[in-house]
């Protein structure tokens, strides 16, 4: 596969040239949103693909990151960089609190716990008027500036987001090949076998969950700096469902699955938003969720490994055991 080593740099270079080819802010903003979602789905993919757990509350962590940036920069005059760091840490802390007791139990307890958290935090965004601005949200978030560099245009932000995506991609790729990664893969193969081999599966699942929350918080913080305005509506339960859909569509436990899933679901959402009003006159955006639901059901039944068939599998060619244990 090293014969293809020129392919990837070429693809990346072409991609980096995109902002100069696309002169529409609409398409550029779609690419930025895909990048932000990819960051979240990368973490969720680790949680789902390796730790075998699902979170129905990642929009909550995403929102928590966004609101942390919004509140710290506008209400407390924190510098953007520190606010972004806080936006990463806070969701991680909350994930540790929710995850510690629930992850020792079956997968559905984390599903329920995160679902509850997602709804609760969404309610808090709506109701905590003094801090969160209620349904009308918080505006006037400053641009992110690191050193003297201010990310005040879509093009700059495009590069920032995709640099983060690339870093996370490389980081996860290394993680999967490390000791922790081998342990995670062991859990995904067989939890009992992993435990027998001395892996503390509960602890590792918790780490995977915290890691996914940190990434969601990071994406949320970046989102707040990008839009410079925040309100509760993008962080509801349906967004959490969309993240799960992205992870599943792209393929769990694959290298490019999160990127593929985020891109396909965002593009499908844009397409549906455009097509549905033509087919069903007077229909609002709520209808797209039907399609997402159906896709989810069909994928899980017929292609539970997702569509990421051409994405390189993260699992390196395993040494086949001489006797396959059942």
């Amino acid at each position: 596969m090293w014969s293809k080593s020129l392919l990837w740099p070429a693809v990346i270079l072409l991609f980096l040239a995109l902002p100069f080819v696309i002169d529409s802010n609409y398409y550029l903003s779609i690419l930025i949103v895909i990048g932000l979602y990819t960051i979240i789905v990368q973490g969720l993919g680790i949680l789902m693909g390796y730790a075998g757990q699902v979170s129905f509350g990642h929009a909550g962590f995403f929102g928590l990151g966004g609101y942390t940036v919004a509140i710290l920069t506008t209400r407390f005059d924190w510098s953007p960089v520190f606010a972004l760091i806080a936006a990463v840490i806070l969701p991680g802390l909350i994930a540790a609190i929710i995850g510690r007791p629930t992850l020792k139990l079956r997968e559905l307890y984390l599903a329920l716990g995160t679902m509850g958290f997602g709804i609760l935090i969404h309610t808090l965004f709506n109701e905590g008027r003094e801090l969160t601005g209620g349904p009308s949200g918080i505006s006037g978030i400053p641009y992110l500036s690191i050193g003297g560099l201010s990310f005040d245009s879509d093009i700059k932000f495009f590069y920032l987001v995709w640099a983060v995506v690339l870093l996370v991609l490389i980081g996860i790729n290394n993680l999967i090949r490390s000791r922790v990664g081998r342990a995670l893969r062991a859990i995904s193969e067989s939890e009992h076998a992993a435990e027998t081999a001395g892996i503390d599966t509960g602890k590792l699942k918790l780490k995977a969950f915290i890691f996914s929350a940190l990434l969601a918080g990071l994406a949320g913080g970046l989102y707040a700096f990008y839009i410079t305005f925040i309100s509760p509506s993008p962080f509801g339960f349906h967004t959490s469902v969309q993240f799960v859909l992205m992870a599943v569509v792209g393929g769990l436990g694959t290298f490019l699955g999160p990127l593929l899933g985020a891109a396909l679901v965002v593009l499908l959402g844009e397409l549906l938003r455009w097509v549905i009003p033509l087919v069903i006159p007077g229909a609002g955006g709520e209808y797209e969720i039907i399609f997402f639901g159906l896709i989810l059901v069909f994928l899980m039944i017929f292609r539970p490994k997702g569509l990421g068939a051409f994405g390189k599998n993260l699992k390196p060619p395993a040494v086949k055991p001489s006797v396959a244990p059942e």
Binding site: E107, V241, V244, Y287, I289, I290, G293, M300
Partner: peptide, 28 residues
């Protein structure tokens, strides 16, 4: 039924998909 041998994770996502599809159907 078609996914009865799948993992708990797969099944819970299927019921989630059913849930949002049915909600959409009711909306229609």
């Amino acid at each position: 039924h078609p996914a009865r041998r799948a993992s708990g994770l797969t099944l819970i996502i299927i019921t989630l998909g059913l849930s949002i599809s049915l909600r959409g159907l009711a909306l229609l």
